[in-house]
Design a protein around this nucleic acid. Sequence first.
DNA 1: ATTGAATTTATACTAAATCTAAATTCAAAT
DNA 2: ATTTGAATTTAGATTTAGTATAAATTCAAT
Lengths: 129, 129
Amino acid sequence: MKINLTTQRKAVYDIILQAHDHPTAADVIERLRAAGHNFAYGTVYNSLRYLTDNDLIRELKLGEAASRYDARTEDHHHIVCIKCGRVDEVMTDVPQQWMEAVAEETGYVVHEATINLEGVCPACKTSKP
Amino acid sequence: MKINLTTQRKAVYDIILQAHDHPTAADVIERLRAAGHNFAYGTVYNSLRYLTDNDLIRELKLGEAASRYDARTEDHHHIVCIKCGRVDEVMTDVPQQWMEAVAEETGYVVHEATINLEGVCPACKTSKP
DNA sequence: ATTGAATTTATACTAAATCTAAATTCAAAT
DNA sequence: ATTTGAATTTAGATTTAGTATAAATTCAAT
Ligand SMILES: [Mn+2]
Ligand SMILES: [Mn+2]
Ligand SMILES: [Zn+2]
Ligand SMILES: [Zn+2]
């Protein structure tokens, strides 16, 4: 079906497109308010789901309480700073050979691998305790 | 501090030790009931947290709603069958070289990588649609 | 036996997200 | 232009997973 970008969906999409910090639904609502929009709570969730289902954005589950959203739909992974909570992109892809080893080990047909890393970001490395 | 395995904590631990399916807290409560125990809801959660904090078990966040628990504390990963929901172990470790490439790319000090795979398990591969 | 810290219990509460039913929007058909 | 109906939005209730609280209890050390 053709994609129907209503005012609300477009506004939500724009927030995600402009963000570079993988915002949560709560972040999105906050930024919509700041931009003068005041959509119903559920509409924002519906929009995020709609955009996700239509592959315009991606939903990230990084093991935190709330999902985050990402306008980059290419295959990539994420690393979270354990000091400041910052989330960065990991474009380096896992070796195909490793995926094959997993298929071999488990007997599964492997569809995809979601990789969430943890570490200390450059800024936090050089900051006082 | 010395580990204090109360009756409740021991019973919860035993359930996890005997399970090979990475049960959720709800699964644990169900199995405790079946074993004749009827602990307070919160006690099971407290016990799971206590056991996790003391490295007797591991908490898994596989991107599903509820956490799962695992008696295998060695470093390993998981693969979920998209047909039946089964969760299996992935012992094949990701190449150290890849971790180094990620550190290089992101500038992070990388502490750990959590890898959740998805695919179709051997049983579901050969079953009717 | 007495004390007190740790634990368990029952219950209330929270956070994230979904569901529901009424109100609205909006394009197509008359 | 008006009617129709499907899609969408809205406000609010509901669900799920888990945490917080405060009273009751357990239990080891005095
Ligand atoms: Mn990203
Ligand atoms: Mn495991
Ligand atoms: Zn940081
Ligand atoms: Zn399966």
